[in-house]
Design a protein around this nucleic acid. Structure first.
Lengths: 188, 188
DNA sequence: TATTAGATAGAACGGTTGTTCTACAGTCAA
DNA sequence: TTGACTGTAGAACAACCGTTCTATCTAATA
């Protein structure tokens, strides 16, 4: 009956929460205590803190909210893209918002050899692919450029909302996104 | 004949360079050595590392590139705004680019009581004012919203360029900025 | 000249970091 | 049983962090 997850799983859960809430610089001891796991298990499963962080990012990319939000927004590609910005407004005005996990990791982990960078790049490339597909379906003349523009908007919203949440950057960005995806198909 | 600046100045110079190149987590010892200054001088002038960082950000905001770039772009407010994005393309493709100093500080310094946050907010509010003025001059119907949109674009470019510089986010953002500022006045 | 303030040099402190290590308990298969 | 594996518990490590301290030197001021 709902057996307790193994140390590896508990480690990932605790690290996912704590690295977002307190930044990737949380001490190993804090994560260990939260996960209720022996110190050795960390190095057994992930080789060290770097490996754990990289694995957390890989997992976070998989269960990304955007894909789910788009699927709930129906079939029209324009509506699906705009739904992401509605979700961004919800995220950035929430109490637990602390910016984008991936952007933060990219900035903080100065060492270019850190395994996290591979995951971050893969995540953003995946998002690009996701949006390019939608724009292509919407008949966009340059889906590659359009997807890059959407990514700039998303990163901009998540970065700007940290300092100036009262500016509601998600709302401001949504208006720009509407221009990118083109007019929503009216009933005909 | 060009006397060596005092310890306070040397400290600011070294901290400005090192906190950008290696992140705000550089050790005090490194800054001290680079500035060739006694340890005690730091605490005498700035009260500690936190004070030094805050002062660096305040200084960096003053000598901001955007204002200079706009002044070099002539008098047309639309051209002046777009010139900022041309400059962003130059910055983000340069070899020493490491993202936005202010955004990075905001993310890394998790303690909300850190004096740097005041400077960061002041900097971004100053940018908002700067762009709102230009948009107002250009006859923009909602200069406040427009300025917020431009700030989202700028933060987005600087954040996204770290991970995907090959996407040339500044070029992608410039096209969106053109929509915001409206058509450039043609000769009449 | 005597005094005071500012700067330098370097030791030292207490705390935290990520990592390694030893010792011990439980589990499953040979 | 024996053995290998996986987990827990906690000591110990070396490195680094920001800060405080003492001591000495210099230069301008009274």
């Amino acid at each position: 009956m709902n057996a307790r997850p193994g140390p590896r799983e508990r480690l990932l859960d605790a690290a996912r929460d704590l690295t977002y809430a307190k930044g990737v610089h949380v001490g190993v001891d804090v994560i260990l205590k939260e996960a209720d796991v022996a110190r050795r298990s960390l190095y057994q499963h992930f080789g060290g803190k770097d490996g754990l962080i990289a694995e957390v990012l890989r997992g976070a990319a998989g269960r990304d909210r955007y894909r789910r939000v788009m699927d709930e927004a129906g079939d029209d590609p324009r509506q699906r893209v705009l739904a992401v910005f509605d979700e961004l407004e919800r995220i950035t005005t929430g109490p637990a918002f602390h910016g984008c996990r991936f952007t933060a990791a990219e900035i903080i982990l100065t060492d270019p050899a850190h395994p996290a960078h591979t995951e971050i790049r893969a995540y953003k490339d995946g998002l690009h692919q996701l949006f390019a597909t939608e724009l292509h379906r919407a008949g966009h003349p340059d889906a590659n450029l359009g997807a890059n523009q959407l990514l700039v908007l998303i990163d901009g919203v998540l970065a700007h909302a940290i300092t100036r949440p009262d500016a509601h950057p998600a709302v401001a960005a949504r208006a720009m996104a509407e221009v990118i995806v083109g007019p929503v198909a009216a009933a005909r």
